[in-house]
Design a protein around this nucleic acid. Structure first.
Length: 383
DNA sequence: AACGTGTGCAACCGCGGACGC
DNA sequence: AGCGTCCGCGGTTGCACACGT
């Protein structure tokens, strides 16, 4: 039977948007909001299909979009969430304020995937390519436990992403008329896109608070593979040292020409406060951890304890200088010194025994949990 | 300077879920 | 329950720019 086209293709424009089109779309949404994308183009006087309008709005014109380079912390978040969620870009985007799923997807495909690949980590499975880690019994136990937790988290993130989307929709409707939407100087000329970064970086943050209810999350349906979870540990290893393995030139390029660790730390700490939605998501974690702990594996209990400690220290300090949590020092001047717990000096060394895998898993979950507790839990509606 | 190749990103396409009738 | 419509998501494409030869 076939699907009816989303719009009448005849006479509709495709390709890059012109500043005039952007202006029309912005003006219309500012005044009316976007009720029906299908009907919007005609009302706004645009020769575009509704889908194209929606895409232009969500990926470019929205005032709450941050453009420009991803911070190291954002990179780490993407990597970790990708290890957890796979290619669920919209869910990942939920936890990266002001970033669109499209932007994250592009960044993953053009930067992070390649970098993981260079590190010898399969960007799809997040496994080391020369993996030989999955054979021991202890591995299986922690794998099962981590899989359970990962399914929880995956389901949570999906549910939360859905709620955030709904909330955003409501917010955009209620606030659009009062928003001051301004066009960039040269909004769409393709060659000018990079110069627009500045203008758009001034976009306001329309924070969205998702109220995730436990009842929304009680049926994990994730199909996250066990191997993904297990080997996500290797991703943490990567993400913690990613800066260290970058050559100095790349560091300078990425962080304003500075290789000074202090400046970098400041940049990280200021770059990305996590959304309250992420935080609220975390508020149900005690249940998860209790459940995990009831299964009584060393991995879960250790992680739970480490979690408390990690929360106190904060994600940045964990990343930058966490030794107490078993992490590694991240230093752009480290020259590839990626020691973990002072043992070994390369990924290959981690293949030596079950302890290393266990440690990696623990570090991975420490990072995930800490990531989710980045903001203070005190303002959660859950308690 | 001209050409070829690589890279980054905006935009498009098609699918599938949600929803209303 | 079945069908049609709408919307959002993820994969992919195409173009412009950067860089190397």
């Amino acid at each position: 039977m076939g699907r009816s086209p989303c719009c009448d293709k005849v006479g509709l424009k495709k390709g890059p948007w012109t500043p005039e089109e952007d202006q029309k779309l912005l003006a219309y949404i500012e005044e009316h909001g976007h009720g029906s994308w299908r009907a919007l183009p005609a009302k706004a006087g645009l020769q575009r299909c509704g889908k194209s309008c929606r895409l232009r709005w969500t990926n470019y014109l929205r005032p709450d979009i941050k453009r420009g380079k991803f911070s190291m912390q954002e990179e780490q978040t993407i990597i970790q969430l990708h290890a957890l969620l796979g290619n669920r870009w919209s869910a990942i985007a939920t936890h990266l304020p002001k970033r669109t799923d499209n932007e994250i997807k592009n960044y993953w495909n053009t930067h992070l995937k390649k970098r993981l690949d260079k590190m010898g980590i399969d960007p799809v499975t997040h496994k080391p390519k020369n993996d030989a880690l999955l054979s021991t019994e202890s591995h299986s136990k922690s794998a099962a436990n981590l899989s359970h937790m990962a399914q929880w988290e995956s389901a949570r993130l999906e549910a939360e992403a859905r709620l955030v989307r709904e909330s955003k929709l409501r917010t955009s409707h209620s606030s659009s008329s009062s928003s001051t939407i301004t066009l960039p100087q040269n909004p769409t000329m393709p060659s000018s896109s990079r110069s627009l970064d500045h203008a758009w970086n001034n976009g306001r943050n329309s924070a969205v608070v998702a109220t995730t209810r436990v009842s929304d999350l009680e049926s994990p349906t994730s199909t996250l593979s066990e191997s993904n979870v297990i080997m996500a540990a290797s991703v943490v290893e990567f993400s913690n040292v990613v800066g260290a393995v970058k050559d100095e030139q790349e560091w300078k390029g990425s962080y304003g020409g500075s290789t000074n660790l202090g400046e970098y730390k400041d940049e990280m700490e200021n770059s990305m406060p996590f959304t309250s939605s992420l935080h609220e998501l975390t508020m149900t974690m005690p249940t998860t951890w209790g459940s995990a702990e009831s299964r009584r594996t060393s991995a879960s209990s250790s992680s739970a304890h480490a979690h408390v400690h990690v929360v106190q220290e904060g994600f940045t300090s964990l990343l930058m200088n966490n030794n107490s949590g078993g992490g590694r020092t991240l230093s752009p001047e480290g020259g590839g010194d990626s020691n973990i717990n002072g043992d070994g000096d390369s990924d290959d060394d981690d293949h030596g025994g079950g302890c290393d895998l266990y440690e990696n898993n623990k570090h991975y979950w420490n990072n995930i949990i800490n990531l989710m507790n980045y903001t203070s839990p005190s303002d959660s509606p859950m308690f």
